[in-house]
Design a protein around this nucleic acid. Structure first.
Lengths: 158, 158
DNA sequence: CCATAAAATCCCATGCTATCCCATCTTATC
DNA sequence: GATAAGATGGGATAGCATGGGATTTTATGG
């Protein structure tokens, strides 16, 4: 199956702070050791970074390999401190904690944004603006992927 | 061998937004981990870029290699956020979501345009106009293909 | 240590929509 | 002109997002 988080889904946040994680995302997460997601506040964006527990374990390992008292290590470790483990209820929903909602400006609805091996959670309006900006940039700069074998890129030139 | 998407096929879009993916294209996609296609809005053209899931996984992996918080990464990830996973039904059809149809101006019919490792989906009229323009340009400028030795098959010349 | 309130979790009910399934029609092939 | 593969249409169905109430857990004060 598609092991990637793709596409964008907007779901409602109910009075209790619950949101359905999109079914396709839950499918991508299926079989992991923790039945839910991990989310933390993005450093540079008004959004949440999220993924499965395996991804977080991998990140922890990477941090562990940094020099014991380096700045990078401290900075990245703060992610671990910030990260919330959000378990699914019987219907595949999670509860978004206040702190996370505030950081992302989420109130009524939440946009789940696929990013391949991870995903983000946005306030839908903000995401749309951001997305548009990114598309502009990509179009203008003709940003390219790091070369690998034969890679006809995403976009053919005109 | 049918590993390439070749030729152009025009199919009807029914009331529910369904279109048959041309049988030859389905054959090219056969055996992939996801039974369907991935499609996203072209940056530069009023058309959809499409391909199989393997292609998207490869793209995701390459993006994953970019610095964690870089601008380029954000820009390219917007493709992943935009990409829709469109599964085949029992008859080999997909449903084209509204957003994609709007971007490409698709209403009644859709043209599936082979591009080798990927394909595009166009509103037929628009494609014809575009195609003509491209051919004109090629004739005027005497466009040539890069020599075989030069790099992997690549990008079409401008 | 117990009692009570608050909050988080579980459980069931509902409406909508995407998907499945079958039936029909068209086109290419022999 | 007969047959098979592909394209198209539409009704039925199951899955999903959502909402509300019931129950358990946690916090707080006596």
């Amino acid at each position: 199956m598609a092991s990637l988080f793709l596409s964008t889904f907007v779901n409602k946040v109910d009075r209790k702070g619950r949101v359905s994680v999109p079914a396709p995302f839950r499918l991508t997460l299926a079989g992991q050791s923790f039945n839910g997601i991990i989310a933390y506040r993005s450093f540079k964006l008004p959004a949440l970074e999220a993924g499965g527990i395996d991804r977080m374990e991998e990140m922890s390992d990477r941090i562990d390999q940094l020099p014991e008292f380096s700045e990078d290590r401290d900075a990245l470790s703060s992610i671990l401190a910030d990260a919330e483990t959000l378990a699914f209820d019987g219907e595949g929903r999670i509860v978004l904690p206040e702190t996370l909602c505030q950081h992302a400006g989420i109130t009524e609805t939440a946009a789940f944004v696929g990013r391949g091996r991870t995903f983000q959670v946005w306030e839908p309006q903000r995401f749309q603006a951001h997305q548009q900006e990114m598309r502009e940039r990509a179009r203008r700069q003709g940003t390219t992927l790091p070369a690998r074998s034969a890679g006809p890129a995403a976009e053919a030139p005109r």
